[in-house]
Nucleic acid binder design. Structure first.
Lengths: 204, 204
DNA sequence: TTCATTTATTGACTAAAGTCAATTCTTTTG
DNA sequence: CAAAAGAATTGACTTTAGTCAATAAATGAA
């Protein structure tokens, strides 16, 4: 399927936004920025499209430019949602460098979604050329790790109702973007229970 | 409190183990290894001692040489355990580089524990001197992030009984090293419930 | 717009976890 | 060793979530 002029224009505008980010870092020459941009692909996905299926071996990392991607596992034939990625969030590859680990989960688009994608191969090249980027990457991984530690801690220390209220507080937009049965599974309850939790909260 | 000769000998033997790890990497000269070792401290802690308290600003990362460290939050006056670190695991600082974020949790030793500790300051120096170490650090952070993503996913997709069975399978030693009421809180249930879960499983 | 499908809610009932109090078992320590 | 403190278990009861079936509401495609 060939890209329409519209789409090409859109991709260029996204690339330009990324260009601005690189330039804002202040440490790169114009040619270097262009070289780095060459290593990144911009792709769009339709609602419902999969980025990854269980068993796939992925060798790329993505950042969400716009849209929403759902991570889920299939356990006993049931979809169990474990994360929603939205604008600005990164989906790190389950594979670092040389390993070839098949994914245990699925990634599917909840909405029409635009990603910036870099292959591990290109990432390696980028980091060799610009060690500063590897350093930044390490620090953002560290931050992301802290986030996950905190998410796990929050999950352990709260019950489903509190988790729903948390979501309402910290990612309210999700409630409108995502079907409720997927939210339910993300909160670790059945759709029926989430419906009752919402009712309970409403009555308070 | 001065170190006894015993303790000095012990710390030296630990340092020597770390020395061997560096040498095994194959890319460093003997003086470089010694310089790197200078940046790392070995410390021992008694059972019950705290490495970190809520509100503390920590500027170091640790690796568990031996022993067991429990991470917990205090929520409504109750300790909520969210992780157990054992031999070979790393406790990354909640602060990367320049930020000064006070900790939201506690770290306390479940047993007599030995740590290797590096300050963020020294870490920075180490990475500047040996970029390969920063690259390794990035990759191990990536792996650790994958671990956490999977732990969160497992937590979301399982009920307390399954979580207990999981622990039995993947970290059986914890069941003997850690008091049951702390495990209960780690599994997200009350001590009474865990006691009943164990009974239920036993009767099957 | 209409029909079909998907999603959300409700009801009735069951299973599991929470709470509080009492008891037993285990570990510490003076 | 004995007393005290800490940890684990058990019982009775309450609250919350799970399950299954029915219905209502919303969404999407022809």
């Amino acid at each position: 399927m060939a890209n329409t002029p519209d789409k090409i224009a859109y991709i260029n505008s996204v690339k330009n936004d990324i260009r601005k980010c690189f330039i804002a870092l202040g440490s790169f020459k114009a040619e270097e920025v262009e070289a780095a941009l060459e290593l990144i692909a911009i792709k769009t996905y339709k609602k419902g499209e999969h980025l990854l299926r269980e068993g796939d071996i992925s060798a790329k990392s993505c950042a969400i430019v716009s849209g929403c991607v759902r991570q889920y596992y299939i356990v006993d034939g049931e979809e169990k949602t474990t994360f929603f990625y939205t604008e600005g969030q990164s989906i790190f590859s389950p594979n670092s460098s040389s390993e070839r680990i098949p994914a245990k989960y699925y990634l599917s688009c909840v909405e029409h979604t635009t990603l910036s994608i870099i292959t591990l191969q290109n990432q390696k090249e980028l980091y060799q050329r610009f060690p500063m980027l590897e350093s930044m990457s390490r620090m953002s991984l560290q931050e992301e790790l802290n986030n996950y530690q905190e998410m796990l801690a929050t999950y352990i220390t709260t019950n489903p109702e509190e988790r729903y209220l948390n979501l309402l507080k910290h990612r309210p937009e999700l409630l409108h973007r995502v079907p409720q049965y997927q939210l339910a599974s993300y909160l670790g309850v059945t759709p029926e229970s989430l419906s009752r939790i919402r009712k309970r909260i409403f009555l308070k």
